[in-house]
Simulated scan of single mutants.
Amino acid sequence: MTAQEANRTHPAADDSSAQAAQQFVQFAIESGVLKFGEFTTKAGRLSPYFFNAGLFNDGQKLLRLAQFYANAIVRSGIEFDVIFGPAYKGIVLAAAVSMELARLGRAAPYAYNRKEAKDHGEGGMLVGAPLKGRVLIVDDVISAGTAVREAMAIIRAAGATPHALAIALDRQEMATENGKDVAHSAVQFVQNQLGLQVCSIANLAAILDYLAQPESADGAASAQLEQYHSKVQAYRDRYGV
């Protein structure tokens, strides 16, 4: 079955995912996590938008973020045994998502790594549940496969299997290697070269859809958001995959 055929087989799931993506984009804008303007990316590109998940920085926002992650993971159908959160942002995400999945009735132990090994107490670089079986990595965004490869190395060293990745936003743009643009995105690299399943709450296409018709904004706020649609579209036309 092709991806297109699979999508036609589960239209309700597709509709649910699209609606959740729009709600997430709105949530990210309201939280100040998703901003529009002019920002320079790590790759040196001038981007009309910036996503900073570190600004999901209070209990209410984190709770809602965890709900978005958990629902996306459940909809994806990805099977896993343990959640792994790469230091540092992934630590909080893994704990929050594990709690929300537990609330939904799905036991999901979690673990995370330290940046430096501890030489006293329990020692080592890993904290939390033992890494075993199929491991789901939870992170915010990926702009290259470097962080994912590092997480995979930690998981394999513990005797477990890196199995899947859950992220908040898929940028859907060309990755860079040795300072040059390549034809695939970081997510495509993780899927095709590293062999991990990937699920995301939203992607750049969802941002464009929202900017075309802001759901909650009206008047001046709506016009302000809509003015960025052409800029984000131009960015996607140039760097998108």
Rank of each mutant, 00 (worst) to 15 (best):
V182P: 03
G121N: 11
E150R: 05
G159T: 05
E215H: 13
A206H: 12
M125D: 15
E116C: 09
G159V: 03
R149Y: 06
M152G: 03
M152C: 09
M152T: 06
H120P: 02
V187E: 09
C199N: 09
A117D: 11
Q197R: 12
H163C: 02
I207F: 12
Q193N: 15
A202R: 08
Q213P: 04
A186Q: 06
Q191H: 11
R114E: 07
K118E: 04
K132G: 09
L204A: 10
R149L: 04
L126W: 05
L211K: 09
N203H: 08
L169K: 09
M174T: 02
V138T: 04
L165Y: 10
M174S: 11
R149K: 05
S216F: 15
L169I: 05
V190P: 07
E150Y: 02
I137E: 01
I201Y: 12
Q197G: 02
A186G: 05
E177F: 05
Q197Y: 15
E215L: 15
N203L: 11
Q193F: 12
L169F: 09
K118T: 06
A205Y: 13
N113K: 07
V148R: 01
V187F: 08
R134A: 09
Q213N: 13
D139Q: 04
Q172I: 03
T161W: 10
L208R: 14
R171F: 00
A186V: 02
L204S: 10
H184D: 13
I154C: 08
A206R: 10
R171P: 04
V127I: 14
V198N: 08
G128K: 13
L165W: 02
N203Y: 07
P162R: 06
P214D: 11
A202C: 10
K132F: 06
F189R: 10
A157C: 05
I167Q: 00
V141T: 05
A160I: 06
A151W: 01
V198T: 07
A153N: 06
E150Q: 08
V148N: 01
T146C: 00
P214I: 10
R149D: 00
I207D: 08
V182N: 04
D181L: 15
A158L: 04
A147R: 01
D119T: 15
A205S: 15
Q191F: 09
P109F: 08
M125T: 14
V127L: 11
A160E: 06
A206S: 14
V187P: 01
Y110I: 04
M174K: 11
P214N: 13
D140T: 03
A206C: 14
L204V: 10
S216I: 15
N192L: 14
N192M: 14
A107Q: 14
L194Q: 14
I142L: 01
A117R: 13
T146G: 04
G159P: 02
D119G: 13
L126R: 06
V141K: 04
G124Q: 11
L136C: 08
A147N: 02
A111V: 07
D140P: 01
V135R: 04
A160C: 03
L165V: 06
L194E: 14
T146I: 01
Y110L: 12
